[in-house]
Design a protein around this nucleic acid. Structure first.
Lengths: 149, 149
DNA sequence: CACCATTAGATTGTGCGCAAGATAAATTTT
DNA sequence: AAAATTTATCTTGCGCACAATCTAATGGTG
């Protein structure tokens, strides 16, 4: 009787994650639209606001995204005047990504987004940390399972 | 000193969710590829395996997806011979989705996927339930915040 | 009944996410 | 040094997500 239906939608952790993730995306949209950003573009900027002048590969490793996703996204950020893509002189295989003044300035306007989202979630900060850690563990286990076999 | 950087990637619950969700998708891929399914197609089938002969709208409400996403996805499932899309005689606006024999039969082959994923995650079932509930709460709060203002 | 709003789906356009394959530069081997 | 291998990025193609717009059918209202 513990079995019930393993295939029931409501029993699926993955679906809970999948649908919550999309809900997050829709919630962020209302704050990012005015900045002209999508959520993936925003997280790329989060990375650059922490450390500027890094390679596409560096960004990909932090965000778990490959160049097939990042190259066109970065081109759009460049077209929007927020970053520049510069071939590395030392190693011509690499492309270094640098914020423009305009890209750096956008950080100010994004400053309040996390707090606003935090208010919506209305969770104690230790619960948020716990969740973040658990999700990180999940991601780690899933990645390990995919890369090996 | 509690503030640190609200914009730091590692402090973002949303990013933890976003990256874990993608990791899930990549993990499922190796089990769904042999069945010729994508993850979104799989969750549509989960819904139909629980209750057959429902409308596109019904599916959309369970999965939090709109017709812009579902219509082409369902057409692909129909092209693959797993479902049929039938205009409702009573209300010609609706399209009812029904599993074919082949679509029903696929349930057998999908039966072991949740357990396999469960082994990868290797979490006590009460922790999984707790996570699922917390993620459901998050989704609810985010949805409420998006629809109102 | 005629009019108007609502509803269910379909369509169009944009932007991911990722697999697979291509290109070119660096590195290692021979 | 030439050849083979590895590495970083780009490109192509497919399938979501979703906003916005459209069409057609239904359900009121006066």
């Amino acid at each position: 009787m513990t079995e019930k239906s393993a295939l029931a939608l409501d029993n699926q952790l993955c679906f809970a994650l999948y649908s919550a993730s999309h809900a997050f995306g829709r919630a962020y949209r209302q704050f990012l639209d005015p900045l002209g950003l999508t959520y993936p573009q925003y997280v790329v900027l989060l990375v650059l606001w922490e450390k500027d002048d890094i390679t596409v590969k560096d960004i990909g490793e932090k965000l778990f995204l490959d160049s097939g996703t990042l190259t066109p996204l970065l081109k759009r950020l460049e077209a929007g005047g927020l970053i520049r893509r510069i071939r590395d002189r030392e190693d011509e295989r690499q492309v270094r990504i640098r914020l423009t003044d305009s890209g750096r300035a956008l950080k100010e306007k994004a400053q309040d987004i996390p707090k606003t989202i935090g208010c919506i979630l209305d969770l104690p900060s230790d619960e948020v940390s716990a969740l973040r850690r658990q999700l990180g563990d999940l991601r780690g286990k899933l990645q390990a399972a995919v890369s090996k076999p």
